[in-house]
């Protein structure tokens, strides 16, 4: 296994292209969240009442699912670097399980909100809620697809450290985005 010099500016863990994507995503979600906070100043009562409609328990449990999944992803990479392919594959499956649990709980939350009539056009808070969490869910789905493909390659033995690190970086990016969304949508208004 080749040793990567992470101190080189062109080789951050996960690769330079993945980190450029991570920063672009963080900036995009960041701007949208700042727009949401600015909007909340004009309709503070509406945002407070709307925030109370959301269930913070769903948000907190989903955060725990993603954080635990991220922990298993970090362990997957570590085991892969130690050449423990079987253990690496096992932890990768646990990572994917965390992602699936997140999506299941998110679907339940979406179902409840739609049933109660809080759809995307209910008010400006829910427009932001549906757009931001919806785009995040798409990222989680893409991440899970990447992890599924990576798991197949892992079993075949056709995977490099760079591949698994880039996939891990994408998966952790979903955690980072969620850590921006969770406090602002579920907690601060």
């Amino acid at each position: 296994m080749t040793k990567i010099n992470y101190k080189n500016i062109y080789y951050p863990p996960g690769g330079i292209l993945m980190w450029l994507i991570i920063f672009l995503e963080l900036i995009t979600f960041g701007i949208a969240l700042i727009a949401l906070v600015i909007n909340s100043k004009e309709n503070s009562d509406l945002f407070h009442q709307s925030r109370l409609i959301l269930n913070p328990s769903f948000g907190a449990i989903n955060t725990v699912f993603l954080l635990t999944s991220g922990f298993f992803m970090a362990t997957t990479v570590h085991q892969f670097k130690l050449n423990n392919v079987k253990k690496s594959s096992f932890y990768l499956k646990l990572t994917m399980l965390g992602g699936f649990m997140f999506l299941i709980l998110k679907s339940v939350e979406y179902f409840i909100k739609l049933k109660e009539g809080f759809s995307i056009d209910y008010n400006s808070f829910f427009t932001f809620y549906w757009l931001l969490t919806g785009f995040h869910v798409i990222h989680v789905m893409v991440g899970l697809t990447i992890l599924f493909v990576i798991n197949k390659s892992l079993k075949k033995g056709s995977l490099s450290v760079e591949d698994i690190e880039a996939s891990a970086a994408f998966w952790h990016m979903c955690d980072l985005i969620w850590l921006l969304l969770f406090p602002i949508l579920y907690l601060i208004f």
Binding site: Y6, K7, P13, G14, F71, A74, A169, H172
Partner: peptide, 16 residues
Amino acid sequence: KFSLIAFQFMELKKAH
């Protein structure tokens, strides 16, 4: 929390 994920799980602490 954001920093812990980036620096520990994503191993950014090793980066440039």
